[in-house]
Nucleic acid binder design. Sequence first.
DNA 1: ATGATATCTTACGTTTGCGTAAACGTCCAG
DNA 2: CTGGACGTTTACGCAAACGTAAGATATCAT
Lengths: 152, 152
Amino acid sequence: MSEALLIDGDIASAISTADEPGKNTTFTIGELAKEFGVTLRTLRFYEDKGLINPKRDGQNRLYSRRDRARLKLVLMGKKVGFSLNEICDMLDLYDLRNGQVVQLRVALDKFNQQIDVLKEQRSHIEQAIDELSRTVEVVSGMLKEKEAAEKK
Amino acid sequence: MSEALLIDGDIASAISTADEPGKNTTFTIGELAKEFGVTLRTLRFYEDKGLINPKRDGQNRLYSRRDRARLKLVLMGKKVGFSLNEICDMLDLYDLRNGQVVQLRVALDKFNQQIDVLKEQRSHIEQAIDELSRTVEVVSGMLKEKEAAEKK
DNA sequence: ATGATATCTTACGTTTGCGTAAACGTCCAG
DNA sequence: CTGGACGTTTACGCAAACGTAAGATATCAT
C-alpha cells in the first residue's frame, strides 16, 4: 500500500490505519473533544445519532481507539460535504479494512456520486460569481456616471 | 447606458430598468407567483420579512411594477447566494437608479464581498473534490487487492 | 470541608425558508 | 344556488446540527 503517500487527515488513511497497540487505548469525552476541536455536546449528539458508541465507565463515556477513528471519519465526511445521515450510512467503512468487496464498491460509488454533487455546486457558485462580476461592472459604470454628473 | 448588452435576468438590468408606462401597472399575487415560479406562500413570506410591500385592494394584495421589480431582485439575490436578510439590507438598491452615490458604493462593496465569499466556498468545494478523488484512488486500489486475493 | 473540574441527563432554543393545513370570504359561471 | 377559482389569516411543522442552560453527581486538590 502507498500509505507513505497519504497526508495525515486523509480519509483513505483513516480507513486503512491500523491500531497501534501500546498507545493510549481509551479516551474521555473531554480529551477527544479537545483533540478534534469539537464540543462535548457534539460528541454526545453523534452518539445519539448512532455514529459513535463509546462504552461506559459507570456513567462516563469511555472512547476506544476505534471510536476515535470513527469520529475522525465523521469529521472528514463533513469536510467533504456529506451529511451526518450519509456518513452514518457509510460508516461501516471503518471496518472495511477487513471488510468485503461489495461494501468497498458501494463506498466507491457514493464517493463518486458526491464528487458529482460537489462539481455541480461548484458550477452554481461559478455562475453566481460571473453574475456578480458583471453586476459590479455595471454598477461601477453607473457610479462613474453619477460622479461625473455631480461635478457639474 | 449599455442596456442592450445586458442579458435579461441580470441583476444590473433589474436595477436599471425603468418603468414602462402604458403596460400593466398592477399584478395580483397569483400572477406574480406564476410569472416567477414561486408560491403564494413565498410572496406572503417575503412581505412578512419586509422585502416587498404591496398595497391592498380591500383585503387582497395589489403589486405594483415597483414591487415586481423588487421581487425580481430578491430572487436574483438568492441566486447568487445572498440570504433574505442580506437582500433586505440591500434592497433599497432598487431605488438607487435615482439614488445617491454613497448607496451605490455600499452596494458595490457588498457585491465584492459576496464574490469573495463565493470564491472561498468554491475553494472549499475544490478541496473536498480533491480529497474525495484521492480517496477514490486509494479505495480503488484496496478493491483490486481484495479482488486479487479472492481469486486464490 | 470546600471549591474547582469534569461529567452526566433532560430538554427547550436557534436558524433559514418556506410547506402545509385549517377555516373562512368573495366573486363569477352555469 | 352551487361549485370552482382565487384570495385571506393564523399558526404549527420541518430539516440539520448542534447551542445552551438547568440541575445533579463524582472526583480531586487544597
